[in-house]
């Protein structure tokens, strides 16, 4: 034990206070931008594209990659590496393929700030926009995963009971978002990307003194894992979700489509000029590589060094406080907390913006005849800010019931969203006969089937469930598209495309 725990606690608390002060300062500078709905959501054009790229990567990497997936690696061994490989490789390739098209379409529609709005414009359908904004509420479970991650850190590092840890976690998250807004989010997420990268690199560097073996450090790690259980070093794990070639391919399919998550696509919409996409995509790839592929190895090392943890999700916090001097451990713990906050703020912003922008602003004029556009805009921002607290309390309530695996719960939430929106977004680019009826049916089919498959154990593997639900969603959309696309529709699409 290298760490004196009361000194560690106070070091972490003081670093956090300085860090929050810095965010408050940035937030004050950005306040002028967040008075309108578009400014609240994207802070468009005010931030360097290199920083937006780092911010994209920091938002991508949440409690799932910093706590949850290392926890899976602790439990199941090297077959989990297929997941993090996809997080860098397949997701980056996906970003490179989709970024330009999504951005061009977004520009064509004028100022849009959210994915439901994008879909609403592409398919000329308010109903679709409202439907997808409701689907994004699945992100509440994603937020729950972040709360659980924070509570696990507080429990492992400071000894705060889990129940109080979740309350503290939600409180600091809400305060953090209240201090900033989107402008602060872009700047601070970029800074957090750097902090997270340093934390990730330190984890791997520390293997030289915790695992040993000099340059053969990974050979040493492999040997010691195999000594515990040979299944821990297999390519395809007998236990755990990575237990067949099909499942591993389905993981890659999931991670390829993951960049279509609304809170990530919003980042692309904040790029101002087309030539800015080049530095943005390159910086996103470089930062994503460092912060998504290294942390998981810490979970493997923790299995060798601390084989008797009560919760696999505690692998990384335990490894950090046992392997580093107090001051460095405190900085790394703050690095992990910032990894969680940088995703949570984007998730909250995505959910609340959708409620304000795509739900309230679309539906309110139906009930309040004669409301002026200015009034509507002001009320939408108010609703979005109120939704922030409601979503926080809702996620807190769900967090009290601790999940077995943080990672599996987070993956459930985003798979449910992706199963629904994958077909409408991708067919929306490539296919002239993609109609609004097809898109609405595809959203309902994909998400509902995913929930049915996983909740009733129709398909036990969560990755295969997502793959087959998406497949059904594509099939429904194509069949309905063929039946409902008529001459008038094709003309409309052509008119929009030119």
């Amino acid at each position: 034990m290298l760490v004196d725990s009361s000194f560690l606690q106070w070091t972490i608390i003081s670093i956090l206070i300085i860090y929050f002060g810095y965010i408050f300062w940035i937030g004050k500078r950005g306040k002028v931008h967040s008075q309108s709905m578009v400014g609240f959501a994207t802070a468009r054009g005010k931030v360097s594209p290199l920083l937006v790229g780092a911010s994209f990567a920091a938002t991508y990497s949440s409690a799932n990659l910093f706590i949850g997936v290392p926890g899976l690696a602790y439990e199941y061994g090297t077959s989990v590496l297929w997941y993090t490989l996809g997080c860098f490789g397949v997701s980056w390739v996906g970003l490179l393929i989709f970024a330009k098209m999504f951005w061009r379409y977004g520009k064509k529609f004028g100022k849009i700030s959210t994915v439901p709005e994008w879909l609403g414009r592409r398919y000329n359908s308010k109903a679709l926009q409202v439907l997808v904004s409701l689907l994004i509420l699945f992100n509440v479970y994603y937020i729950v995963g972040q709360n659980v991650g924070l509570a696990t850190i507080f429990e492992t590092v400071i000894g705060i009971p889990y129940f109080w840890g979740t309350i503290i976690g939600v409180t600091i998250t809400i305060v953090y978002i209240g201090l900033g807004g989107a402008f602060a989010q872009m700047i601070t997420d970029g800074v957090q990307g750097v902090l997270m990268a340093i934390t990730s690199i330190l984890i791997v560097v520390s293997f030289f003194w915790t695992i040993g073996g000099g340059f053969n450090v990974f050979g040493e790690l492999t040997d010691r894992l195999a000594a515990i259980d040979p299944d821990l070093i297999s390519f395809i794990g007998e236990n755990g979700p990575y237990n067949s070639v099909m499942a591993i391919l389905a993981v890659q399919f999931l991670l390829f489509s993951f960049i279509l998550m609304p809170h990530l696509l919003n980042k692309i919409l904040s790029i101002e000029k087309e030539e800015d996409l080049a530095p943005f995509t390159l910086s996103a790839g470089a930062v994503l590589f460092v912060i998504s592929t290294l942390m998981v190895l810490g979970g493997l090392a923790a299995r060798v060094l601390y084989p008797n943890l009560s919760s696999p999700d505690a692998a990384i916090p335990t490894y950090v406080i046992e392997s580093f001097p107090t001051i460095i451990a405190a900085f790394m713990i703050v690095g992990i907390i910032s990894a969680i906050l940088s995703s949570t703020d984007a998730l909250y912003l995505g959910v609340t913006t959708s409620i304000g922008n795509d739900f309230f602003r679309v539906l309110a004029p139906l009930f309040k005849k004669g409301i002026s556009p200015e009034q509507l805009e002001q009320q939408a921002v108010k609703v979005a800010k109120g939704a922030l607290v409601v979503v926080g309390l809702w996620s807190l309530y769900i967090s009290f019931d601790r999940p077995d695996s943080l990672s599996i719960m987070i993956q459930f939430s985003f798979s449910a969203i992706l199963s629904g929106i994958l077909a409408p977004i991708s067919l929306g680019y490539f296919w002239k006969k993609a109609t609004n009826y097809g898109a609405i049916a595809a959203v309902i089919t994909g998400s509902a089937l995913y929930v049915v498959f996983t909740q009733f154990n129709v398909i036990e593997n969560i990755y295969l469930a997502m793959f087959f639900a998406s497949l059904a969603s594509f099939a429904v959309m194509i069949v309905i598209g063929l039946f409902t696309a008529n001459e008038k529709h094709s003309e409309l699409v052509l008119k929009k495309a030119n």
Binding site: L85, G89, V90, L96, K100, F235, L277, L282
Partner: peptide
């Protein structure tokens, strides 16, 4: 498996950069 992991990461770096150079890099 860990060595394969690093090799595959390198492979994705190269293929990602190839796509980037083709579609994004200023000519």
């Amino acid at each position: 498996m860990i060595l394969t992991y690093f090799l595959l990461i390198a492979f994705f770096w190269l293929s990602g950069l190839a796509i980037w150079a083709k579609f994004y890099k200023k000519s």
